[in-house]
């Protein structure tokens, strides 16, 4: 089952590289959104692999609440360009 995690790490490295090399802030935000989804899915997979219910709850909470912070940040950045 560990091949799942290895493939997920490879998929996770692509947006990290993108966030590092791109200078446009919205491209960075896009990479951030992708990383946020991918890490929470990875937490869910780890919880299923280890059969740990508690980690699974944390993964779902991060998945559903973490995106809200991203949207708030997007709106602040948008207002920034407006002023």
């Amino acid at each position: 089952m560990n091949w799942i995690l290895v493939a997920m790490i490879i998929a996770l490295c692509i947006p990290i590289y993108e966030a590092w090399q791109d200078e446009d802030i919205w491209q960075k935000m896009l990479a951030f959104g992708s990383i946020a989804t991918k890490t929470s899915i990875m937490i869910l997979v780890i919880s299923v692999l280890r059969d740990d219910w508690m980690i699974g709850v944390v993964g779902v909470l991060i998945l559903s609440v973490g995106n809200a912070g991203l949207m708030l940040l997007a709106h602040v950045l948008r207002r920034l360009n407006q002023l």
Binding site: K28, F32, I35, I46
Partner: peptide, 18 residues
């Protein structure tokens, strides 16, 4: 840009802690 990267760091950190 540092704020966005801080978000990425937070996501990775949560993954490592979990």
């Amino acid at each position: 840009h540092a704020l966005v990267i801080r978000g990425i760091l937070g996501a990775i950190a949560a993954l490592v802690y979990a």
